[in-house]
């Protein structure tokens, strides 16, 4: 199918973008980073087209539904949200060093979707539980939340690396990373966006569960893990807003939070539960 062919090309384009961003920092050549941006934009555009194609294709197959119904489609969408949010951040901050830490996440998601033997790229018809108008709003809010946390994870890594930077070391790569206060601030902004989106995602999920299963909360592992993630980020926000934690502490908590996000997304598949179609 055309869409999955485009998706596998996109994987390589994102990898190329990552390499350009990385080389730009290692060799201190702004032009390479610009090529990275162009590659990212091409990848994002191609991926957008492919998502729309897949959506249209599902209708021609007679099973028409938004392309958010299994692990393959969710991984593709995850990469898309990461790249979209990243492009917005790059455009707003006019700084391309973030690309080195964010594009590999989108690349990994795409590579996992395209090359894992356990993941089918076929368009599958929707099982009855997924036939709901809440599917689109639930998936979109959750994945924008995940993507914001992914970016926050990238910024946290940059923050921790930047701490190693000093005059003696004179390392170009570290010097090119933006200042710590900028990173800290961006990190927090992403956490806030992610938290709002995750909250929306959990709420839309509960409303949906209520109409599908008759209960808005059933302590299913995926639900519970999304709550765990929510609790972790809630404590990050409280520790910062009220207790004034900054910098390294927030960066470390944000990395822990992203680990919870990943477990909510992937790890839960190893536990039995109601979200089994996302395997």
């Amino acid at each position: 199918m055309l869409n999955s062919i485009i998706f596998s090309y996109t994987t390589f384009v994102y990898f190329a973008a990552f390499m350009f961003y990385l080389l730009a920092m290692v060799m201190n050549r702004e032009i390479l980073a610009r090529i990275g941006t162009v590659a990212s934009l091409i990848g994002l555009l191609a991926q957008t087209v492919a998502i729309i194609l897949r959506w249209v294709e599902s209708y021609t197959l007679g099973v028409g539904h938004a392309p958010f119904s299994n692990l393959y489609e969710s991984l593709v969408f995850f990469a898309w949200t990461i790249m979209l949010l990243y492009m917005i951040v790059e455009w707003r901050t006019k700084n391309r060093t973030f690309g080195t830490f964010v594009t590999p996440l989108a690349f990994l998601a795409m590579a996992y979707a395209s090359f894992s033997p356990n993941i089918s790229s076929h368009i599958q018809p929707l099982i009855p539980a997924l036939k709901s108008n809440w599917l689109i709003s639930h998936v979109i809010t959750c994945f924008f939340g995940y993507a914001a946390f992914a970016l926050s994870f990238g910024f946290s890594l940059m923050y921790l690396l930047k701490r190693l930077d000093n005059q003696k070391r004179n390392n170009i790569f570290l010097q090119l990373i933006p200042g710590r206060s900028i990173l800290d601030d961006l990190n927090y902004q992403m956490i806030v966006v992610g938290f709002l989106m995750l909250t929306l995602g959990i709420i839309t999920g509960s409303v949906w569960a209520h109409s599908a299963w008759g209960t808005y909360w059933s302590w299913d592992p995926k639900e519970t893990w999304s709550l765990i993630t929510w609790l972790i980020y809630a404590s990050v926000i409280h520790s910062r807003m009220v207790r004034g934690w900054k910098g390294k502490k927030i960066a470390i908590l944000s990395i822990i939070g992203f680990a919870c996000v990943l477990f909510t997304y992937f790890g839960v598949n190893y536990l039995a539960g109601l979200h089994s179609y996302a395997k």
Partner: peptide, 27 residues
Amino acid sequence: TVKLTIVLLIILAIVSILGTLVPQEQG
């Protein structure tokens, strides 16, 4: 104290993890 809030949020997160590892009810 907000310290208590943070401690409670983290305790709740940790015990909730326990509940996803030990099979609940039917399982």
